[in-house]
């Protein structure tokens, strides 16, 4: 399977986070569940700076009723 260019950076970021967690005595999360990467100094809810919490791409693609 092909991976986009950003995947390489992302995988490194996850690894760094796991190393940090080990240093801090925490159990590293499994690679399948990506840890929350964006720990920042903001307040109160720095991970949520977008106006709308919508998934990308558009949520509308997932909205069809499928009774089959």
């Amino acid at each position: 399977m092909k991976k986009p260019f950003f995947a390489n950076f992302l995988e490194n970021q996850v690894n760094e986070d796991e190393i940090q967690q080990v240093k801090g005595g925490l159990t590293p999360e499994s690679a399948t569940k990506l840890p929350d990467l964006d720990q920042t100094m903001k307040y109160p809810s720095d991970n949520d700076e977008g106006l709308q919490t919508m998934k990308y791409p558009s949520d509308n693609d997932e909205g069809n009723i499928n009774l089959m």
Binding site: L37, N47, D48
Partner: peptide, 21 residues
């Protein structure tokens, strides 16, 4: 390099971000 959108949004509103690299 960085990205324009968050990678995912969880129920508590936090998004998994791509860090500037």
């Amino acid at each position: 390099t960085k990205m324009q959108t968050v990678l995912s949004v969880s129920m508590d509103g936090s998004g998994q971000s791509f860090r500037t690299s």
